[in-house]
Design a protein around this nucleic acid. Structure first.
Length: 208
DNA sequence: ACGCTGATGAAG
DNA sequence: TTCATCAGCGTT
């Protein structure tokens, strides 16, 4: 049975977490619906020495969450109107996170009628539904559009994704070969100088 | 190629 | 308290 990703998954090297997040299911429960899709594009932001990382400015009110425990959501407002969802990685005190940039097989599914609030019930029901759904039909490209569609805002900043029943990740059994992962420079970080060239954006190739 | 939009951090 | 900037997006 699919399980909610645990602390140990996130408390590792950021690039390992980023690549292993590809193919995982991101699930949001909102107003009686499951909003979900498989992660197919991410970016790593690693430490205070990474000039593209918000934590390059040091520990501030905004970046506080990134300095904390792995597995929590770091959500920020960008360009005045969009939110971006990150997952905090590595050990407390070391600021790093994975930006979730895109989903494939995006779906909206009605939550179970006699839902008790227990995630484990939700998981089995949800994954079965996802299995029935037409995988790969709809894509959700871009971190801002992703958050808008999933109703993720700064209200979710700091949320513990390993225990939350509103926003979480599960291993949906989608195998991703490491050799199928593409790496490119990160998007929209031209200001970061030499760090703008680091190939820290990871994505799955389009389905054939 | 540009405008929208407001939080953010740096400067004063 | 200003000020420039910005991990996007949609339209021109």
């Amino acid at each position: 049975m699919a399980k909610q990703l645990k602390r140990a998954f996130f408390a590792r090297d950021t690039h390992i977490v980023a690549k292993e997040l590809l193919g995982k299911l991101l699930v949001r429960r909102w107003r009686g619906n499951f909003l979900a899709g498989r992660v197919n594009e991410v970016e790593s932001y690693v430490g205070e020495n990474d000039l593209a990382c918000h934590a390059a400015k040091g520990r501030t009110k905004r970046t506080e969450v990134m300095f904390g425990e792995a597995g929590h959501a770091y959500v920020y407002l960008v360009y005045g109107m969009y939110c971006c969802l990150n997952v905090v990685t590595q050990e407390p005190g070391f600021p790093a996170a994975v930006l979730v940039r895109g989903l494939m097989s995006w779906n909206v599914l009605p939550a179970i009628a006699n839902e008790s609030g227990d995630n484990s019930i939700s998981f089995s029901a949800f994954t079965q539904k996802m299995g029935e759904a037409n995988v790969g039909q709809t894509a959700l490209n871009g971190p801002g559009k992703l958050c808008r569609a999933m109703h993720i805002s700064k209200a979710q900043n700091g949320e513990d994704l390993t225990i939350s029943n509103k926003l979480w990740l599960i291993d949906g059994g989608y195998g991703v070969g490491r050799d199928r992962i593409l790496a490119t420079p990160r998007i929209g970080v031209e200001y970061a100088g030499k760090d703008a060239l680091l190939p820290w954006r990871y994505l799955l190739p389009p389905r054939s």
